[in-house]
């Protein structure tokens, strides 16, 4: 095994373990903390994949914003102990079966990939020459401008929706 492969093996192993920890913890706060560790791993993996921008927003948005939101909600709800007493629903064996079949099927898909499409213009060197941020910015603000604007609308709707849903009804 080469060094990069060793690195990947570490990441793969730790991420799998972290994911299992996340879905099996009794206390949601623990889940969120493990989630944070997982996100940092994912961000490092993005760096391997030459996607610095994604690594940055993974930390900023996921770890910085979404997880904090989760923590806030957990705090707001102030759950009693018995709320978290029994972890699993009665259907958990079926769920596990389905999840296993999912894993098997998707691994089988990998074997199905025989023909690779032609390589695009954004090789490692090309991105390095211009900088990751610059490249993604150029693509985002030219070819994907309309989806980008729509994404901003989606966020706006989410903001308004969240406010409307969570505010006290004043009669």
């Amino acid at each position: 095994m080469t060094l990069p492969q060793l690195f990947f093996a570490y990441f793969a192993l730790s991420m799998t373990v972290l994911s299992l920890l996340i879905v099996t913890r009794k206390n949601p706060v623990h889940s969120v903390i493990w989630m944070l560790v997982l996100f940092i791993h994912i961000a490092a993996l993005y760096l391997f994949l030459n996607a610095e921008f994604l690594a940055a927003i993974q930390i900023i948005i996921y770890a910085g914003a979404i997880l904090v939101l989760f923590l806030f909600v957990i705090m707001l709800l102030n759950l009693k102990r018995e709320e978290t007493a029994q972890k699993y629903q009665s259907q958990w064996p079926i769920s596990m079966g389905i999840a296993l079949v999912f894993a098997i099927f998707m691994t089988m898909i990998v074997g199905k990939i025989t023909v690779m499409p032609a390589l695009g213009e954004y090789s490692v060197e090309a991105i390095k020459a211009e900088g990751s941020m610059m490249t993604i910015g150029k693509v985002l603000y030219t070819r994907y401008l309309l989806p980008f604007e729509i994404a901003s609308l989606v966020l706006l709707v989410a903001i308004i929706g969240a406010v409307v849903l969570a505010k006290q009804r004043v009669e």
Partner: peptide, 13 residues
């Protein structure tokens, strides 16, 4: 795929 399956399990169970 593995992480996704774990997520599916978490969601369903």
């Amino acid at each position: 795929a593995v992480i996704f399956s774990i997520g599916v399990f978490g969601f369903l169970a």
